[in-house]
Design a protein around this nucleic acid. Structure first.
Length: 204
DNA sequence: CATCCGATTTCCT
DNA sequence: GGAAATCGGATGG
């Protein structure tokens, strides 16, 4: 199971995202096999991206080197994690939406009291809770091998199992953002999160 | 299945 | 100052 290196992420986000399916991410004593991700393209080109309007303190790490974690806080209580992709300076990233716990079950169970195993990482904020990702991990190099690391699947994922569709909870000016088929998941995996359309925001 | 509402940051106005 | 937020748990039909 080869370790993923920075070169893996230093490519177009739309090439990287589907290849992350089946990859394992290990952090905080738990290993997760990714079953669902979403691509967010670069600054200025993707209205759904946090980096769309350019550099702000929050999205600073998105403009940095590929292979680092962009972890942000939202809805007053949730953390979500992305992996920065290349080319550097473009600020593209892949949101980690769901996965299956393949190691560290005891630790995961303790972090998600009352939740069924299927739900441990079924959704981006549940995923960060199970892996113990938060403010401290923002900017962490996931290719440096220490606190966090990623491993390619033992056997490559069959292309026929990869599905695509619109991103979850994404909408924006112009409306067509919500139709980009930039969500990728593995067909038949119970850990894939239920689809929720984005709420149409109105201009005030 | 649909709706509601939390609890806080971030960034735009 | 204030709306919106890459969401999730609870509750009601």
């Amino acid at each position: 199971m080869p370790r993923l290196t920075r070169d893996f992420f230093d490519r177009d986000v739309l090439d990287v995202a589907p290849e992350l399916l089946g990859v394992t991410l290990t952090h905080g004593g738990v290993t997760l096999r990714l079953t669902e991700v979403e691509a967010y393209a670069g600054s200025g080109v993707d209205p759904g991206s946090h980096a769309f309007r350019g550099r702000t303190p929050r999205v600073e790490v998105m403009f940095g080197p590929p292979g680092h974690l962009y972890v942000y806080f939202t809805y007053g209580m949730h953390w979500c994690a992305n992996l920065v992709c290349g080319p550097q300076g473009q600020a593209s990233a892949v949101l980690l939406r769901a996965g299956e716990v393949v190691d560290g079950r005891e630790v995961a169970a303790a972090r998600r009291p009352g939740a069924s195993e299927r739900d441990w990482a079924r959704g981006p904020a549940r995923l960060t809770r199970t892996l113990a990702l938060g403010r401290a991990e923002n900017g962490l190099d996931a290719c440096a091998g220490e606190a966090a690391h990623l491993d390619a699947p033992a056997a490559p994922v069959a292309a026929e199992r990869i599905r695509t569709g619109p991103r979850v909870g994404v909408s924006g000016p112009g409306g067509d953002v919500a139709t980009y088929p930039w969500r990728f998941w593995l067909d038949g995996e119970p850990t894939v999160s239920p689809y929720r359309p984005g709420v149409v925001r109105r201009r005030s």
